[in-house]
Amino acid sequence: MSDNIRIQGLQKRYAGFSLEDVTFSVPRGAVVGFIGENGAGKTTTIKGILGLIRPSGGSVEIFGKDAARLTAEDRGRIGAVLGENCLPESLNAGQLDGVMRHIFPHWESETFASFLGRFSLPRNKKVADFSRGMHQKLALAVALSHGADVLVLDEPTAGLDPVARDEILELLYDFMQEERRSVLISSHIVTDLEKLCDYIAFIHDGKMLFFEEKDALYERYAVVHAPAEALQALSDAVVAVRRGEFGASALVRRAKLPAGIAAERAGIEEIMLYFIKGERI
């Protein structure tokens, strides 16, 4: 399967933070969930993909080309939602349509209008007066109205109620009906990612902890609840331990877990918490 986006050894240094050796890909036909705590480097990585920052090292390839060499036509195949408030707030949807028509080589006004209708978004109301849910739906409508084959979404469902989030996920499912397309989505709402994603890329403190198929993660990791001493005996299998009032629990590698030890399925959020907050033994 070829990749729509390939990031190799991406580096970016700021005073007080650096992105180090970020490597993962977004295959064609796949949805990649990008997780990490606030300040881990998700937005910096996404900005590196979209050409908004100059990397200190590494490479980003999109559609098989160096990202720095993409043409306007190529960039038009990438739909982006850059977090909250990513659209000009002083404009209304009608004016946005007029502007985007002359920004994107393949802007589809009819498609945009149909999204406005689908989401009941008013054409003449300023974006500044939209609710958060309306704003995010409008941002997605823009991203989906210029012939994009790849969506790069930075927290597109942040602050939305479950109904609005579900509508957005449905949009993304529809988008992925075409095999050549991909989505890279960063989100703190891991339950959304579990529904949608094929792969999970996990970044922590500027470094990639893993990039795996979601189902492989479920098969690889499990959670064991046991007294701390018992977990010590499983040190080969244990990735990290968390101690609570009523005992301890550990994220373990199933493959190294002795037979007969009861283990629960580890969700993506649990895996993330153990990696970040768990103790190593």
């Binding site: 036509e73 960039r75 990513c86 707030e89 002083s90 920004i103």
Partner: peptide
Amino acid sequence: TSDDKDGWEEFAVAAGVS
């Protein structure tokens, strides 16, 4: 000033405007 408030630079460059 309005562009700054809108994050227009980021949007336009991400959209492919050189």
